Amino acid sequence: MKISNRVLEMQESPVRKLVPIATRVKKQGKKVYHLNIGQPDIKTPEVFMDAINKYDTSVIKYSFSQGEPILIDAIRNFFKRDGIIFNENNVLITNGGSEAITFSTIAMCDPGDEILIPEPFYTNYNGFTGEVNVNLVPITTLAKDGFHLPKKEDIVKLITPKTKAILFSNPGNPTGTILRRDEMEILAEIAIENDLYIISDEVYRGMAFDGLEALSMGCIEGIDDRLVIIESVSKRYSACGARIGAICSHNEDLIKNILKLCQARLCVATLEQIGAAALYSLPTEYTEGIKNEYQARRDIVFETLSNIDGVVCEKPTGAFYVVVKLPVDDAEKFIIWMLEEFTLDNETIMLSPAEGFYGTEGLGKDEARIAYVLNTEDMKRAMLILEKGLEAYNQK
């Protein structure tokens, strides 16, 4: 039987494709520190389950296709803290930020159209767009520049008649880079001058270190008609499995048409929406505490990497990732070797090969993404294993 070209041409996730190897070695008794996936180990706030347990109903009914009003209002209040005002018709609840990006892509683009994206980028963007036959066009950013955007003219020259939008995450996954306001204003200028949409993935907003602020694109003037903000409870509230995201936009015509897609998939799970609404009610002190915890983990990772010969990386300023250039020819081969052949007291680590986070062929082959999602003691241990592993790998 024939399998569609669409799915055959989709990229396999570099974050998850080595999981079978990790599963096998764990069954053999080896402990693996997972630094390959953005799954926080921080406890999900109790208010999530409390709200679900208190939800008084005898029947779990379909939710509204747009989403539960209590959650929509909670998200509106969340943005209101930053002076960004959405009405009830500006927000659609989705099955995670993933569905939010897929639906936005479908509404903005026809098959064969293009979306500009700074690279390295969250690899699953390839899946969200590729499954609807939309092509990502990379805007190359470099470690030596802290993965900040190139000059405006270098971005503009990538625009073609097929270009329909600019997509980016801020703070960035996998780089941990926070865009400066002037960079955001340049993207806004480009979008206005070339009649493009902007998809601003802000699921890590709030995780900004060293006194920096991750500004929402909603604070940039003049782009309300072309801006979509992607929101999610996954990272900020350590609720990845809840699969609750949102599309937020002042372009009500766009929202009205994306609602058709929401209607076609019926609704998002009712109970998870009730729990998510409670998460958005948490005070800002909660996210401040989370930010401080991740900054402490970041410091451990960066300090260790800075003292390993041949390793090159820039200090990340947000999210909980860092892209690191390793003193190896092929990062994926090194990661597999670490899983299968290396141990330090029967322990090893798992990273993500960074090549899959690039759209430009040949980039990232000697790079890896580290997700510092484990507690500080485990991060210290994992970094020691990495250091010893690199020593052993380059001596074999």
Rank of each mutant, 00 (worst) to 15 (best):
P118H: 14
K380N: 12
T376L: 00
V322D: 13
N251P: 02
F147T: 01
M338A: 07
N173Q: 10
P69Q: 01
V312N: 07
C240T: 15
E12M: 12
N173R: 06
D145P: 08
R6M: 14
D82W: 10
I229R: 12
N394H: 06
R24I: 08
I37G: 14
Q11H: 10
G130T: 01
A165R: 03
V156S: 08
M1V: 11
V47E: 14
V15N: 09
N5W: 10
M217E: 04
I220Y: 11
G176A: 05
E391P: 00
N90G: 05
A319K: 02
E88G: 03
G318C: 07
K54A: 11
D41I: 10
V32Y: 04
I199L: 00
E221F: 05
T123E: 15
E189C: 02
T270F: 13
A107N: 08
I186S: 04
E46A: 11
D210V: 01
T129K: 00
Y204I: 13
K164V: 06
P111F: 01
I244Y: 03
E293A: 13
F128V: 01
T57V: 15
K26D: 02
E202D: 05
L212Y: 15
Y393S: 03
N87K: 06
P118R: 11
E189F: 06
G112P: 03
R297H: 05
S65A: 09
M383P: 02
D110Y: 10
G241I: 02
I93D: 00
N257D: 09
E347C: 08
I42A: 10
E221P: 04
E314N: 14
E221H: 04
K291H: 01
